[in-house]
Design a protein around this nucleic acid. Sequence first.
DNA 1: TTGATTGCAAAGCGTTTGCAATGAG
DNA 2: CTCATTGCAAACGCTTTGCAATCAA
Lengths: 146, 146
Amino acid sequence: MHHYAHNSNETLRKRGYRLTPQRYMILSVIQEADEHLSIEQILERVQKRNPQVSLSTIYRTLELLRELGLVRENHLPGEQPHYETANGLAHHHLVCRRCRAIIHLDEALLGNLNEHLQEQHHYHDIALDLVATGYCDACWLAMQQA
Amino acid sequence: MHHYAHNSNETLRKRGYRLTPQRYMILSVIQEADEHLSIEQILERVQKRNPQVSLSTIYRTLELLRELGLVRENHLPGEQPHYETANGLAHHHLVCRRCRAIIHLDEALLGNLNEHLQEQHHYHDIALDLVATGYCDACWLAMQQA
DNA sequence: TTGATTGCAAAGCGTTTGCAATGAG
DNA sequence: CTCATTGCAAACGCTTTGCAATCAA
């Protein structure tokens, strides 16, 4: 935990950004969570430590951390965007088109596609986010009957 | 082209929905496009045929077609959602976290992951949407220097 | 005929922005 | 000390919704 925070702080400063208490709190909240968080959840948890922190700061900071590659943004259909630390294990999603039920898939699912893409397209520090959509069994049955 | 439209129309009716001129036009516009379209683009093209069609009808119809599996919804970070026919070849995306440059990836990239997921999780009619994020070469270099 | 669907206009709501005050470096 | 960053409140823009009129079946 703490050395993640440390690295992140260094990244911020190296790129010429200031390490404000707000940025530190927002990063900590995301790093200490064991799941991806919505903006509303991040605001709540940050405001537990300092109720002054404003929603616009959350937005501005998340945008910065995303661009710096310190947090990942997740945007599942029918859901608000969620944020998680870039250090943790990402996972993919299988979503029902009808009832929106979500199954979490293992990150290992995509193997070394990562390196493959890096070599082939000369992009760096690649993260993968797979969204599979289909019908869950219950919805599939319901649709067959109708 | 036309038999796609035909199938889609049947799907609508089979499920107990009405085939209105608006729905037919919206489906046609998406099926005749050779790329995924934003809502604004769909509205423009539909209104070329009938300027009366309203934006809310576009929204309501897209939601219906999405749930029926007739169109696919794409939501890349920093972009508005886009829609494409479910029959065409989907493609995946590699996006730069900094400048948002987009590289289109071949659908074949994920091989038979489709069937794999269907068997393992009992979901049906699965479509895959991969979003890879990283830094393009130019941005990567720019960041190293700063 | 008749209930699903549409167009319109208004409301909703997540996100962005201008600006003066603040504070990290 | 200085300029990046913040908090606030207002603006924004995409999306949803209520309702009367319309029209596909």
